[in-house]
């Protein structure tokens, strides 16, 4: 009975006590916000004094041209390699070499 009375008293007076701690015009739910942001403090110090590089790649016709040229070169190289690889298995002296049915 004693503990129940004490607990109920605590519940009755705790909000009042907390409100008494509040400054004038202070948000009464400030502690909730603090509790939320307190959990986010892990990487806070690492972000201080640093630069967040949120960059994007701007369209540059010269760079685009270079990129396309590079892509074409790589594609041709791949094609040459693939052709060389497939040629290895194709015996030129085999009969019906040019017939696709007999190609491996």
């Amino acid at each position: 009975m004693k503990t129940i009375t004490l607990t109920s008293l605590l519940f009755l007076f705790l909000p009042g006590f907390l409100l008494a701690q509040l400054k004038p015009d202070q948000n009464p739910r400030a502690q909730e916000s603090y509790a939320k942001y307190r959990q986010q403090l892990e990487n806070h110090e690492q972000s201080m004094g640093t630069t967040a590089n949120l960059t994007y790649e701007a369209y540059d016709p010269i760079l685009e041209k270079k990129r396309k040229r590079q892509d074409r070169r790589e594609f041709r190289q791949e094609l040459r390699l693939e052709r060389a690889r497939s040629r290895r298995y194709n015996n030129l002296y085999r009969p019906y070499y040019y017939d696709p049915y007999y190609r491996w």
Partner: peptide, 12 residues
């Protein structure tokens, strides 16, 4: 704003 709030939380 979030960064400011985190700093305030750190100050506590």
């Amino acid at each position: 704003r979030s960064q400011i709030r985190r700093e305030r939380a750190d100050q506590q």
